[in-house]
């Protein structure tokens, strides 16, 4: 096995036997691949094997005979899908492209030199949808800060100017994506998680986690598909982040996989860079979305 031909130069010799001898690793990989633990979540020892198997599963899935679809797309389907994907790209912008860790944006609604202001009348009736719409006119940093205040029922807010980011598409997308707001459970920090299943995207607002030293530990978000972490061995990695200052931080969620329907969000403390599988020893925040 080995040769682990990651980029496997090669036309030959990955040395994978396909005899009938059961191979523990193969069996494990096949199991992981068919049961959905493969490809981009890693069961570390056999990631490459899993990937190989999962691709085989994908090929077989595509090749399996199935009936002609009697459901056909409605007009403009392809264009709508393209727009959504492109909207998502805009949403995440540069932070994903470079593959860096999440940027932590610190809300500055109440600090910093105010240069702009938004009156409450515009914002207050705002359920999320309205708030998001309003935010569309602002940069991400300002937008997030404003949203924080709006959702808390703040009356008026002043904003720091922010280098423009193409957030209109993002905000519109989140709004259209039916984002929901889920507060952190009692005993944890203040704040909540804004998340859209459809877009597989959102952000957290957190106030009350201790500052961390990123060389020692980092926070990591996990997104569970159900609401019982005990039964879910492989939640989706939602990205690592730092809390550098007291007060509220706003953290975009960088889900490494499609979540589907998020049931629960949990923040753990992990070693710098985060981990693939959390031991879940230090859970510091949980939000039950149900």
């Amino acid at each position: 096995m080995n040769g682990s031909g990651a980029s496997g130069n090669g036309s030959n010799g990955h040395g994978v036997k396909h005899t009938d001898e059961p191979s523990y690793r193969d069996t494990l990989a096949a199991l992981a691949a068919t049961e959905g633990r493969g490809l981009y979540t890693s069961v570390h020892l056999v990631e490459r094997e899993i990937e190989r198997y999962e691709l085989a599963v994908g090929a077989a899935f595509a090749a399996w005979p199935r009936g002609g679809a009697d459901v056909v797309p409605t007009d403009g389907f392809e264009e709508r899908v393209a727009e959504t994907v492109i909207g998502q790209m805009t949403l995440v912008g540069g932070s994903r492209r470079g593959g860096q860790d999440l940027t932590v944006l610190r809300g500055s609604a109440t600090a910093g030199a105010p240069t702009g202001s938004v009156s409450a009348e515009q914002a207050v009736p705002a359920p999320l949808a309205g708030a998001l719409k309003l935010l569309g006119a602002l940069g991400w940093f300002a937008a997030a800060a404003l949203l924080a205040v709006v959702l808390r029922g703040g009356l008026s807010v002043t904003l720091e100017p922010e280098p423009a980011r193409p957030l209109d598409a993002q905000v519109a997308a989140l709004e259209a994506g039916g984002a929901t707001v889920t507060p952190w459970a009692d005993g944890g920090p203040a704040g909540d998680v804004v998340w859209s299943d459809r877009l597989n995207s959102g952000f957290m607002r957190i106030d009350g986690l201790e500052r961390n030293d990123p060389t020692v530990s980092q926070y990591q978000l996990w997104i569970f598909r159900g609401t019982d972490p005990g039964t879910e061995a492989h939640p989706v990695d939602g990205g690592v982040f730092d809390v550098r200052e007291a007060g509220e931080v706003i953290v975009p969620i960088d889900a490494k996989l499609g979540v589907g329907s998020a049931g629960l969000f949990a923040v753990t403390i992990e070693r710098p860079g985060g981990v693939v599988v959390s031991s879940r020893e230090q859970i510091v925040a949980v939000a039950f979305r149900g």
Binding site: F77, Q88, N200
Partner: peptide, 22 residues
């Protein structure tokens, strides 16, 4: 195969292509 409703299917297709990008 998931649904008879084209909107629902489109929804899934959309999710899939977002995943493809990611």
């Amino acid at each position: 195969g998931l649904s008879k409703d084209p909107h629902e299917v489109e929804d899934v297709v959309q999710d899939i292509f977002v995943d493809v990008w990611r």
